[in-house]
Design a protein around this nucleic acid. Sequence first.
DNA 1: GATGAATGAGGATTCATTCAT
DNA 2: TATGAATGAATCCTCATTCAT
Lengths: 217, 217, 217, 217
Amino acid sequence: MPKRDNVFDILFENQEMTEKQKKILEAAVEIFSEKGYSATSTNEIAKKAGVAEGTIFRHYKTKKDLLLSIIAPTMAKFIAPFFIRDFNKVLLSEYQSFEDFLRAVIINRMEFAKKNFPMIKILFQEIPFHPELKEQFKEHIINHVIKRLKLIVEEYQKKGEIIDMPPQTVIRLTVSSILGFVIGRYLMFPEAKWDDEAEIERTIQFILHGLSTYNKE
Amino acid sequence: MPKRDNVFDILFENQEMTEKQKKILEAAVEIFSEKGYSATSTNEIAKKAGVAEGTIFRHYKTKKDLLLSIIAPTMAKFIAPFFIRDFNKVLLSEYQSFEDFLRAVIINRMEFAKKNFPMIKILFQEIPFHPELKEQFKEHIINHVIKRLKLIVEEYQKKGEIIDMPPQTVIRLTVSSILGFVIGRYLMFPEAKWDDEAEIERTIQFILHGLSTYNKE
Amino acid sequence: MPKRDNVFDILFENQEMTEKQKKILEAAVEIFSEKGYSATSTNEIAKKAGVAEGTIFRHYKTKKDLLLSIIAPTMAKFIAPFFIRDFNKVLLSEYQSFEDFLRAVIINRMEFAKKNFPMIKILFQEIPFHPELKEQFKEHIINHVIKRLKLIVEEYQKKGEIIDMPPQTVIRLTVSSILGFVIGRYLMFPEAKWDDEAEIERTIQFILHGLSTYNKE
Amino acid sequence: MPKRDNVFDILFENQEMTEKQKKILEAAVEIFSEKGYSATSTNEIAKKAGVAEGTIFRHYKTKKDLLLSIIAPTMAKFIAPFFIRDFNKVLLSEYQSFEDFLRAVIINRMEFAKKNFPMIKILFQEIPFHPELKEQFKEHIINHVIKRLKLIVEEYQKKGEIIDMPPQTVIRLTVSSILGFVIGRYLMFPEAKWDDEAEIERTIQFILHGLSTYNKE
DNA sequence: GATGAATGAGGATTCATTCAT
DNA sequence: TATGAATGAATCCTCATTCAT
């Protein structure tokens, strides 16, 4: 019983879609994320969407097209615009400390990730198998994200809040720690009992201390 | 041009295999890791292995069987026995500090991971799609690994080297940081220039400071 | 050169069928009856039907399904309804004597059998190899046919036309004699010259005398 | 747990066979009779026989060869020699009446049929699918059996014990009645309770009266 | 004689895609 | 726009048969 229509509407905004097309996308997202693109048949999607198989191909030339039409906006909306926003906020000193920034990012993005979980799962599951996607992803990451993140990191390094270390490494360690939580929490052990708030706090503290300038002595 | 016969011999030791069977396994590992299990055809494997397609099915009842015969030993040899070894070493105080332990583990496992990279890639790529594998993996992880790691962590917590924090969280943060490096280094940006030694050292320092008891003030 | 469309239309009435589907059924009946279900390949059927192999599986999930979709209606239309009809006629004394009944049955059923010969051949050839079919057949036979035939036999036994003998035995002997003719005539020696009328008459007389009450003395 | 070694020894006498070869034959007979020739794989036979698949082909050039090596002697020993024996007995007036002859035949052949049931089942199941077998069978039947049976029938017709009717028809009716019993008894309803003796007697009486000259009035 | 690994042709079935309606 | 019948290439797998040991 997909409740995430709203999320869909955001992700696929400015795309006019028939009711059926939405159903197809929903079904595809659900099955792709569950069984993987390759192991999913268009027939299966059609059935789950309550649509004739031909209808899928009216809207998406090929099965791959359908995949891309899910991944592309996920990539675009998930990664790019967010950082632009935060980036400006940082430069404008809206986040007074690295800690503030970190906390804001985690809370904000986590919400998004939770809602769009299946889409993101597809994204990471399929990237290794589709070189074009990989390329696209790297470009996004490197050009839009890392570039900006570097500037942010350097900003906080200048302020003396972050240890002197190649910004890429700072980014890697920070992202690892956050993703490590997300993956453990939602992918690997979703049914375990988690004290989300405490875990997030611990993760933030871990990152902050791990990157603190006090380590220098 | 598979040069990793030695690794194969270790991973599939105590299994008598025809020359052809080895060829099949090698081919399967290579293609599975590249395109994913589902997108790989047995025909393709046969061709790459220089074998008739029927031969595959003489040795492995089904394609899935072939997958499992790759994953199972990878799981067994990669995860379980290693920790048992290290576990004892820790208890016997062979590693004087958490830092020593961390460094030993990283160096040792990294070597193995590098050699068996394709197998491990398959392992992580396929687990999300095969509930039995997931189950098996969790069991391995939880029963054999986390249980022991917890004891190790508690040992170093008692010694005052690690901050007082639920051991699972310590494990999560540590493992995230290490895997973050491995994934970035070997999966996402293998072609970038990496100063491995420095990056490993930074990762270790990050973990140590992130978990240090001096944070407490 | 299938001329039996009419028969098909009867046998598969109330089933909407594509032209192609009919072609598939015709081809299947012909080849199944000739070479047996197991020795028939779907490829062969497709070719004879002038259809792509995939088309077969659009209409019948499996090859077995195709077989059943031939056998089930044959069983239903061949066995069940006929006897119900005759059964009522007997009870309504439309057949004044056992001889009349016998003659009517033979002539009527013989016509049907001749037309649907391949279907019936398949029925009897495949039953021994498919336990579910066997079960289904027995149920049909026992519940619908023998039960009614028993009543008919008992009716004529009451009238003193048939010797006092377990009705099953009467049925067995009668059916054997008739089927013996059909099998010899159409299955074993179809190319021999047969004086059908005379042979049928002799068969009827044989049964009548074999079961006559005059034997009693 | 095949107990019919003796039967095998008779059927395949004057053929030198290794232990393995016997095992193969036994397994083949069992599976062929159960699933049909076409649906039986040599692999299956090999497994049941406890033999390597290659061994089958040491002894029988092809799978068909194996089938024939079962059917041929069954045909030869079941049909031919028996009638020769009985034939002579009839001519030598060893059977004083048609009834005696009938009874002797039924009892004698029934015994054989019961023991060699699977072989005979194979015979009748496979004949429709193998034209050469059909031909071979017809030849056996027509040349060796019917020809002689005709003479026997004519003998009893001369004696006035059998009604004046084409001998083929007499044979057909007689054989039908007997086979009708065998098929019902052993093939169709083997698990029903049968009073064998009574049923056989009824069958004999049915045939005798059906063919009696007293019918002539 | 017996084995069982190896074969490749052929088996049933699935698949993404097309197209007439 | 939507359908669903039709396709035929491709898929996984089975088979009878061969052959080196």
